[in-house]
Every structure is written in structure tokens, then in C-alpha cells.
């Protein structure tokens, strides 16, 4: 459905994307992970035909995304990463404009989406919060029933409840056999929906893997609070990777094997477990660092 082959675009400041290659199959939800500035949006912009690749090609549905950009876009629903609407319009006017440009006549799906997202469409853009604007963007992206969805950081600005609505929407469309490519800087955001994901760093694809493999690879950090201070010393003697201890709180790093942690902890009286939120680099730190050494 989507083929990206050797895509390269270097900007004057030396950054850019280099030899980006991956494929997305029909019916697949593909995550595109990377820290900010890694080249996710640049890759997506090539898919939308906003830039001419210096090298390589991007193909959607058999159409080259630069040379035949309007054909490549025809069956695409695109949600840009940066929300910027036309000034002086309200949500409904914008939705109608986009429907007109998409050649959409049927308003049923549109109204259904507006209701589900609890959007008040007649609000002028200047009075909308970021989340509301994002909802308008989501309506526009989904209303014409596209075959392929290209979503750049789709859940940014949405509250947890709306994130759930959005994820349901994605899963429904996935069940209908639609194809997705979704960028994000947070693994937690895409692991609920994606089948596979690519990780991009400094403009280069680091890996393309199944979500299960990535989940196994990720490194999680837990703060375990033990009731008995003496247990801290005992736990230190185990095979667990202990980053540090602070009073009766032990910070433990886990990658892949959770059984060992559970087994070890069952010996003690645990009064609290909390997970430490980490950046994408930290989650896959092992992978980034050891990739060269291991292979």
C-alpha cells in the first residue's frame, strides 16, 4: 500500500532524512516512532507530495507521491502534525470546505464523527482550544472514508477520554481493512493500536519491528517501595538490575523478563509500585546503544 524506498532529503542545516526505507501493507497499522526532530514529519511530508525527494521514492497505491501527488492523495486521509486552520472561519465552514474539496456529498459520516467527538462545529477557530482544533482535524481526516490514513501525532492535545475515542475509531477502521501510518514520539501511544513500527533517529531508520518485539525490547523503570528497610539489602543481592536505592525505595530496570521481577518481589512486603515515565530514547536505550556491538 505504501512503499518508501531510499528516501533522502537533506536540508541546508545538515539535518533531514537519509535513505528511509519501509513498507506498509494493506490493512496494517504502522507506527512511526522517533523523538522530536528525528524526521517523522519530513517523511510524512514526502508522502503527501509537499517535497521532491532528493533521492529515492515514495509510492502510495501505486502512485509516485511527488510526480502523481494528487492521485496518490486521492484515497488518503491526512492529519497534519501542526494544526493551523484558515483564519476567520468556524469549524463547520472548514469541514464543508474540505468536504467540497474531497468531493464528498454524504454528510452522514461527518455528522456521526462530530457527535462522537463531542465537537461543537460552529465555534470560530480563534475561540477553539488545541484539543477542539484537533477534533476538527480528525473529523476532516476520517469523514471521506479514505483507504489510507496518514496521521502525524494524532492524539496530541486530546484529553485521555478523547484519546480513547480516537483509538476506538482507529481500531474500527482497521477492522474494515484500512491502512494506517501514524507517527508519534511516545511508544505508549502507539502500542495500543499498531501492528508494526519503525523507529527513526537523526533521520535514519533504526529498526522496523513487530509491536510485540518492541514491547519486549523496551526498558521500563519501576520504583518499588518496600515496607522493611532491611529488605533493600536483600534485593540488592538478586539478579535484578538496580539503578539506585533511596531509603526504602528501590529503582529497578526491567527489559523483557518480568517473571524474575515478580518472583523476587514476592519474597518481600511491597507497599507501592510506580512506573517511571521515560522518553523514547530511554525506553529503547539498550537497543540504540548495543545495536552496533551486538550485530
Amino acid at each position: 500500500m505504501i512503499q518508501i524506498q531510499g528516501l533522502t532529503q537533506q536540508f541546508s542545516n545538515g539535518r533531514g532524512i537519509f535513505d528511509v526505507t519501509f513498507e506498509v501493507e494493506k490493512g496494517e497499522v504502522f507506527g512511526f516512532l522517533g523523538p522530536n526532530g528525528a524526521g517523522k514529519s519530513t517523511t510524512i511530508r514526502h508522502l503527501m507530495g509537499y517535497m521532491k525527494p532528493q533521492k529515492g521514492t515514495a509510492i502510495i497505491h501505486g502512485f509516485n507521491t511527488w510526480e502523481q501527488q494528487e492521485k496518490a492523495r486521492e484515497k488518503v486521509g491526512y492529519l497534519p502534525g501542526e494544526i493551523s486552520f484558515l483564519d476567520g472561519m468556524n469549524g463547520l465552514e472548514f469541514i464543508n470546505l474540505m468536504a467540497g474539496m474531497q468531493g464528498l456529498k454524504d454528510k452522514k459520516r461527518r455528522n456521526e464523527l462530530i457527535e462522537r467527538l463531542q465537537l461543537e462545529p460552529k465555534t470560530p477557530f480563534r475561540k477553539m482550544s488545541k484539543g477542539m482544533k484537533q477534533k476538527v482535524g480528525i473529523v476532516v481526516t476520517f469523514m471521506h472514508n479514505p483507504e489510507i490514513y496518514i496521521l502525524d501525532e494524532p492524539t496530541s492535545g486530546l484529553d485521555p477520554l478523547m484519546q480513547k475515542v480516537f483509538i476506538d475509531l482507529v481500531l474500527e477502521e482497521k477492522a474494515k481493512g484500512k491502512t494506517f501510518i501514524m507517527s508519534s514520539h511516545s511508544f505508549a501511544e502507539i502500542e495500543r493500536t499498531c501492528d508494526r513500527a519503525a523507529i527513526i533517529k537523526d533521520g535514519r531508520i533504526v529498526t522496523v519491528k513487530n509491536i510485540n518485539d518492541l514491547q519486549y525490547m523496551q526498558r521500563k523503570i519501576y520504583d518499588i517501595t518496600l515496607e522493611n528497610k532491611n529488605d533493600v539489602e536483600k534485593i540488592k543481592e538478586s539478579n535484578l538490575i538496580i539503578e539506585n536505592t533511596n531509603d526504602n525505595v528501590v529503582r529497578i530496570v526491567v527489559q523483557g523478563d518480568y517473571n524474575e521481577l515478580i518472583e523476587e518481589l514476592s519474597k518481600f512486603n511491597v507497599i507501592n509500585i510506580s512506573i517511571i515515565s521515560q522518553s523514547l530514547e530511554d525506553i529503547f536505550m539498550n537497543y540504540y546503544d548495543t545495536k552496533v556491538a551486538v550485530k
Binding site: Y50, R73, V76, Y78, P80, S84, F94, M98, M101, V140
Partner: peptide
């Protein structure tokens, strides 16, 4: 970006 996201 929005105007250029359709078949137009």
C-alpha cells in the same frame, strides 16, 4: 497542508 491533503 489541509488544502493540499485532497485530490485537488
Amino acid at each position: 497542508a489541509y488544502l493540499l491533503s485532497t485530490k485537488v
